[in-house]
């Protein structure tokens, strides 16, 4: 009997421990590799996560935007074009909810890359922003070299973007919103056409903002 009580207590204690360490955390996504490095004369194995490399685009105000402009920020990236007849309106209707939630937060941004830079000039993007009802610097519409944009989408954000004259509007793209943390690591993918997933993303951004800059085990 006494023994049983001890077991029960032990089990309870263990559960309590588990509860304590069970803070909500987001996974780190993308490719990774293990590297061996020397710290204080000892060999240790460290994980190197995939990060978004530097880029250079222009926003709707004509300002040059590089990764430095996003330093210390959590951000959401997506791909669109202003004349898109299919999924963009619903994506940006949902993104507007994200914008409204975080527009006064200093460490959060939204960047929307156009995949049709030939048509979507800075002036066109500004007009789109005005019509959408966004202002300030918390949501940038980025325009730049087409190859750079496509490469960034396919190789770094790992979402599909390509030109295809056979589809409505002439471009194939998926409606992913990609969540990136302060260390340029991908932390989540959300279907931008699905209101529920976008609501989940808003909740996840809050988790990410609360995350202290420590290493997160998966």
């Amino acid at each position: 009997m006494r023994r049983l009580a001890v077991y029960v207590l032990l089990a309870a204690a263990l559960t309590a421990c588990k509860f304590n360490s069970d803070k909500p955390a987001l996974p780190i996504m993308g490719n990774r590799e293990a590297v061996t490095k020397t710290v204080n004369g000892k060999q240790v194995i460290d994980t190197v996560y995939q990060t978004i490399p530097d880029f250079k685009f222009v926003n709707q105000y004509g300002d040059t935007i590089t990764q430095k402009s996003l330093k210390g920020d959590i951000y959401v990236a997506d791909f669109f074009f202003t004349t898109c007849p299919s999924i963009c309106p619903v994506m940006h209707r949902n993104m507007l909810n994200v914008y409204k939630e975080f527009k006064n937060v200093p460490d959060f941004k939204i960047i929307s890359h156009t995949i049709d830079p030939k048509h979507d000039s800075v002036a066109v993007m500004k007009k789109y922003a005005d019509k959408l009802g966004i202002s300030g610097n918390s949501w940038w519409l980025l325009q730049g070299n087409k190859e750079d944009t496509y490469n960034l989408g396919q190789k770094n954000y790992l979402v599909a973007v390509k030109q295809d004259d056979g589809t409505p509007g002439g471009y194939v793209h998926q409606g992913w919103f990609v969540l990136v943390d302060k260390k340029s690591r991908i932390r989540g993918y959300y279907d931008g056409t699905d209101e529920k997933q976008v609501a989940k993303m808003i909740a996840d951004i809050k988790i990410l903002r609360a995350e202290v800059n420590t290493e997160i085990a998966q």
Binding site: P89, L96, Y128, D130, K131, G133
Partner: peptide, 13 residues
Amino acid sequence: NCHGNNGEGLSAM
């Protein structure tokens, strides 16, 4: 997609 669930449209767009 464009006109919305409740026919609300999208901003000034």
